[in-house]
Amino acid sequence: MVPTGYVLVLAAVLFLLGLVGVVLRRNVIIVMMSVELMLNGVNMTLIGFARARGEMFGQAFSFMIIALAAAEAAVGLAILVAIFRTRRTVNVDEISLMRH
């Protein structure tokens, strides 16, 4: 059986790698992929705690987070396509329409 601390550390590392990707990358698509990595880190925490308590509720929550991630990806990528159609770029530094 897997010690819960190991699972939580792995989940935290996954979350932080996603965060580093969000901060460092300039391509919106890869930034969104990094957000998916962060969501996976959170999911792994929930499933790890569910395993530690021997209950199913954590898994039910992570099921809903996966559905939420699907909705987020659909809307986010639609916005990305709309931005690319008008601005011809996927660089987050150049997408600063709201600032002006």
Binding site: N27, M32, L80, V81, V90
Partner: peptide, 18 residues
């Protein structure tokens, strides 16, 4: 879904990590 958008938008990243 991601692959669709990647293929649609293409590889347009000029300045990589900034």
């Amino acid at each position: 879904l991601f692959m669709f958008v990647v293929m649609m938008v293409g590889n347009t990243e000029r300045q990589e990590f900034g």
